[in-house]
Design a protein around this nucleic acid. Structure first.
Lengths: 146, 146
DNA sequence: CTGACTGCAAACCCTTTGCACTAAA
DNA sequence: TTTAGTGCAAAGGGTTTGCAGTCAG
């Protein structure tokens, strides 16, 4: 948790930007979150600590976090932009349950490897990727039977 | 091309819906398209044939096509919903060029296989998936060098 | 005939921006 | 003090819906 904060501070310094109370709070909220929150979700979390923070600040700070490589955008199928941790994390793949919306994160080195092969085949330089498998999770499957 | 039309007609009949001139035209335009068009794109294509068609009709018909399994939604990272063929087509993976926005479609049976394994591991029943690799395509890479 | 369909325009909803005020450095 | 940051509210921009007129069955 400390490390990402350091990255952010360096990033700000390098760009001549300032570390404000709000940015600090948003960063902390972002780092604590487990799931893939939307701007709105994060806004609500931060607002609990600091009731007069605005949407715009959350939005703008999130952009900075992305630029700094600390956050990453994910699209889960609705029209909302969601965020996940980016810095130093392997990019994981998602199993998305269409019944309960639960998300299972996973990393599969073999798939990763095949993706690289695929890129080579097309002479394509990858910067990031996103794998989502939609379906029904274990629990929901069980409930259906009951 | 005939087959999908049949599927659609059955679908409409089953739901007590009507096959209108507009729906026919939108279906044909959708089936002819090669790329991943947004509602807006498809609207423009159809409008050329039938200038007084409205956005809403395209939008609503697209929803029907999805329900009938003929179309499928894709999210490429902008805020647009895009569509691709769904019925009877293998789900292909995408290489998305971040410079020129070009899309390379591809299918990789090995990756497909590993995905199935992944699902089994989590006892997850997959219904569809989506793999997107973002990066720089061959042409744009070359241009950069020049 | 009758209920589904259409086009229009407006409502929606999330994202993004402009601006006058505030606060890091 | 200077310049970036903030909150507010409004603008954007794509998607969705309400409605009165229209048309397929």
């Amino acid at each position: 948790m400390l490390e990402e904060r350091t990255v952010f501070i360096y990033f700000l310094k390098r760009k001549g930007l300032k570390l404000t109370q709000q940015r600090e709070e948003i960063l902390q909220a972002f780092l604590k979150m487990e799931e893939h929150l939307s701007t709105e979700d994060l806004y609500k979390v931060v607002k609990r600590k600091n009731p007069n923070i605005g949407h715009a600040t959350v939005f703008r700070t999130l952009k900075l976090l992305i630029e700094a490589g600390i956050a990453r955008e994910v699209y889960l199928g609705d029209r909302r932009v969601r965020f996940e941790h980016g810095h130093g994390h392997r990019h994981h793949d998602h199993l998305v349950c269409q019944v309960c919306s639960k998300l299972i994160d996973t990393v599969n080195p073999e798939i990763e490897k095949l993706q690289d092969d695929l890129c080579k085949k097309f002479d394509f330089i990858p910067t990031s990727h996103r794998l989502q498998i939609f379906g029904i999770c274990k629990e929901c499957k069980r409930k259906k039977r009951e």
